[in-house]
């Protein structure tokens, strides 16, 4: 196996009492497109800062291409769109890109960076006059100007409307088609689902799920079956249901039960056989949002049970 593009080992970062990143192990191979998904405050931005060597870990290590992050930056192998990392408001887009390019050792031409971001028409525009979406794409041009092998993007499509988001991911596709590695933080599930080949879900500074979009979705795949029994029959129902096979989970609250099953038809037949008095039956399908919610709400206490894939 090649040396991984990014390797985080037992990485932790505390700010006083607050532990922003709490023991993250993550290896990303070259050519992977990985989404870091998580709610605000999950530790995504801090993880990115640590990976880039912008912040020093409290413990653990971050390596890029097998070495110190700074070495990878010096070699021009890493490009980044940071949160709060911006262009200079008083310059034009071209001037800002030219400044960053001049700080690199073997940059692309300014025109090529503009083309990759699809913003050649904005070159002479003053940065302070850009819309939110245009600004993000100008920042993308800055991130790619060193012609990096690894792109790290912190919420690249924040402040973009639907149309510019689509165009942005189109530029990104061209970039990844050349076999480069992309790690992007987002809290848009659909983005992670459609653009990443791997989704890493963070919550409270920990990885709570790591797998392909399909695997992550399958954590709560199948359907939920909810039903109630009469108050006096709850215990009998519980023991009857213990013989039920092929279900993912069973939850009981007083006389209400929730089952999760990959084959809801078969499970429902069995349930009706075992608990004939079941009533108020509901069957619902899960979505990516459910997967996300399930993982990020329960995860802090039950990390191991929800980690999927490899």
């Amino acid at each position: 196996m090649d040396i991984p593009a990014l390797e985080l080992a037992a990485l932790s970062k505390s700010f006083g009492q607050l532990t922003a990143v709490d023991g993250i192990d993550l290896t990303i191979q070259r050519g992977e497109v990985v989404a870091l998904l998580g709610p605000n405050g999950a530790g995504k931005s801090t993880t990115i800062d640590l990976a880039l060597g912008l912040a020093h870990p409290t413990s653990g290590t971050a390596r890029l291409f097998g070495g110190d992050p700074r070495a990878a930056i010096l070699a021009g192998r890493v490009g980044a769109m940071l949160q709060g990392g911006a262009l200079l408001p008083t310059t034009t887009v071209r001037q800002s890109i030219a400044l960053v390019a001049a700080a690199h050792r073997a940059p692309l031409s300014i025109d090529e960076a503009l083309d990759r971001a699809g913003i050649r028409d904005l070159a002479k525009q003053r940065v302070s006059k850009l819309s939110g979406g245009q600004l993000q794409r100008a920042r993308f041009a800055i991130a790619v100007v060193s012609n990096p092998d690894l792109l790290i993007l912190d919420e690249p499509t924040a402040a973009m409307d639907v149309e510019s988001r689509r165009e942005f991911w189109h530029s990104m596709r061209e970039f990844t088609a050349e076999g480069r590695t992309v790690v992007f933080a987002t809290h848009y599930l659909d983005e992670a689902d459609s653009f990443a080949d791997r989704i890493v879900i963070l919550n409270s500074g920990r990885i709570v799920a790591d797998g392909t979009p399909a695997e992550v979705k399958s954590v709560v795949s199948g359907r939920s079956i909810r039903f109630a029994v009469d108050a006096g029959e709850a215990d009998a129902a519980t023991s009857a249901l213990s013989r039920l096979g092929g279900i993912r989970s069973l939850e009981q609250r007083a006389s209400r039960f929730t089952l999760v099953s990959d084959d809801s038809d078969a499970t429902l037949r069995s349930v009706l056989h075992l608990v004939p008095t079941a009533h108020d039956i509901e069957i619902t399908a899960h979505t990516m949002d459910d997967a996300f919610l399930a993982l990020t709400t329960s995860a802090a206490t039950s990390t191991d049970t929800v980690t999927v894939g490899a």
């Binding site: 912008l54 940071l82 200079l88 408001p89 960053v100 800055i142």
Partner: peptide
């Protein structure tokens, strides 16, 4: 100060400068 407050210095830190 202005450059710092808009995050320009952070961006520069991701360059060999």
């Amino acid at each position: 100060t202005t450059e710092r407050s808009v995050g320009w210095n952070r961006q520069l830190r991701v360059t060999p400068l």
